[in-house]
Design a protein around this nucleic acid. Structure first.
Length: 424
RNA sequence: GCGGCUUUGGUGAAGCGGUUAACACACUGGAUUGUGGCUCCAGCAUACAUGGGUUCGAUCCCCAUAAGUCGCCCCA
């Protein structure tokens, strides 16, 4: 299958690349306003970085990484997400000299998972990380940034779920409380949850199978078990979001899949997306920088799935129309016109216009058809007469008016017609 | 990793166990030898995802593989 791209990968073709650029431009503009600098980290890292950063026992690390040995016997992994790399770069480049450090990235991530709509093996994320700031204002800022982006793209149907997953001080007590609660209900839980009981009891809460069972509603809520610091922080985040009119809902069962989260956890969903409706997710990860070898450094961030956003925009018809129009088509009739036509088209291009021509020596009529298909408002026609007289026929395709002008004035004439059209 | 559905030309697709695989769009050429958009004419799948099998014979039946899609899981 030489002609098939690997499973779960996709070519982005010229007809859709405009949508990507549109989204990327929105992102970059917004990040500039919020004061975030773009960072580009390597596509692959030492496997150990992800094992430590994301955590053993998570699905991403255990079953979804593209890991291989390079020729120097190093274990290398294609990044499955960009937070660990960003933190690594933060430490390696000693960015902590100033604080806080606000970064964003756009790039490919790789996860070996079964592909379906909105889930690819190579996919693109936009994400944001703030390092070195513990204030709840930053948690809110980061959520607001994601919210603003989605809103400015014209998306209305958004759900923001918010929770706090506590910190190393209060989470052990909560874990224990949960285990006490579930211990006598173990037989009623699904097999997945039974195995989660020891390892990751928090995950039982967002199990799709057991989630609807009656006793779930009575399970202890983490928000009731938070330590003072976490509770105050959580409270403050909510106050900010409320003041800024971000429509969030508390979801005590929201648990993030990666180990490094502390305190704030959030997720933005677009219900119309179906099974893969989570479009952005993130939260605070105060323990990660230290885990990777830095000083104790608070941090918050999120990642957003660009394919999922683009899918939604397409469904909702919110993508900008493709800009595939040429400005001018150069028509050359006869061999003698070939070189002058090439000179003419080059002059148009150097003047900044999108200029097309026929290379195959097709008939005059066919070249006119091509001009029409290219939606060029102007055709510049070079035939035998024109070449002999050093003239060019400038035809306005919309009005069918045409006029012969000296070769040297062709570009100026073209400019005049195009600006006239623009004015209308 | 698990389950359901799908797979015909550049695109949308019809089709039946049996000598020419509809139709439409797109594309290419043409309709008084230098002018497009409308109309008309012509051309355009030794080929029906791939590999096996059943059959006298399969694009249509069976199996496997691959890819896509939906759901589970997970997540963005």
């Amino acid at each position: 299958m030489l002609t098939n791209a690997p499973r779960g990968t996709k070519d982005i073709l010229p007809e859709t690349v405009g949508s990507w650029q549109y989204l990327e431009t929105k992102i970059r503009d917004l990040c500039r306003c919020y004061g975030y600098g773009e960072i580009r980290t390597p596509t692959f890292e030492h496997t150990e970085l992800f094992r430590r950063g994301i955590g053993e026992g998570t699905d991403v690390v255990d079953k979804e990484m593209y890991t291989f040995q390079d020729r120097g016997e190093r274990s290398i992994t294609l990044r499955p997400e960009n937070t660990a790399s960003t933190v690594r770069a933060y430490l390696q480049n000693k960015l902590y000299a100033s604080s806080p450090v606000k970064l964003f990235y756009i790039g490919s991530m790789f996860r070996y998972d079964r592909p379906q709509a909105g889930r690819l093996r190579e996919f693109h994320q936009f994400g944001v990380e703030v390092l070195g700031e513990a204030s709840a204002a930053v948690d809110a800022e980061v959520i607001l940034l994601a919210w603003d982006l989605l809103k400015s793209l014209g998306l209305e149907d958004l759900t923001v779920s918010l929770n706090s997953v506590g910190c190393p001080k209060c989470r052990p007590a909560y874990r224990a409380a949960l285990q006490d609660f579930f211990r006598d209900k173990l037989p009623e839980l699904c097999s997945d949850c039974q195995s989660r009981f020891e390892r990751a009891p928090l995950r039982i809460l967002d199990c799709k199978v057991d989630g609807g069972k009656d006793f779930m509603a009575d399970a202890p809520k983490i928000t009731d078990c938070l330590c003072d610091e976490c509770r105050e922080h959580f409270q403050a985040v909510q106050e900010y979001l409320t003041a800024l009119k971000v429509n969030f809902a508390l979801d005590p069962r929201l648990v993030r899949g990666l180990d490094y989260y502390t305190k704030t956890a959030f997720e933005i969903k677009i219900p119309s997306l179906g099974a893969q409706s989570a479009v952005a997710g993130g939260g605070r990860y105060d323990g990660l920088v230290k885990e990777i070898g830095g000083n104790d450094t608070p941090a918050v961030g999120f990642a957003l799935g660009m394919e999922r956003v683009l899918m939604t925009l397409e469904q909702a018809g919110k993508l900008p129309p493709p800009n595939d129009k040429a400005d001018v088509f150069v028509v050359a009739a006869g061999d003698a016109a070939k070189i002058p036509a090439f000179e003419l088209i080059t002059a148009c291009r150097r003047a900044g216009y999108t200029a097309l021509m026929d290379y195959a020596g097709r008939s005059f009529k066919s070249q006119m058809k091509q001009a029409d298909k290219a939606k060029a408002p102007v055709a510049l026609i070079l035939g035998e007469d024109e070449v002999r007289d050093s003239m060019v026929t400038v035809k306005n395709m919309a009005s069918s008016q045409q006029e012969k002008v000296p070769l040297g004035e062709a570009v100026a004439k073209l400019a005049a017609i195009l600006s006239e059209r623009k004015g209308e």
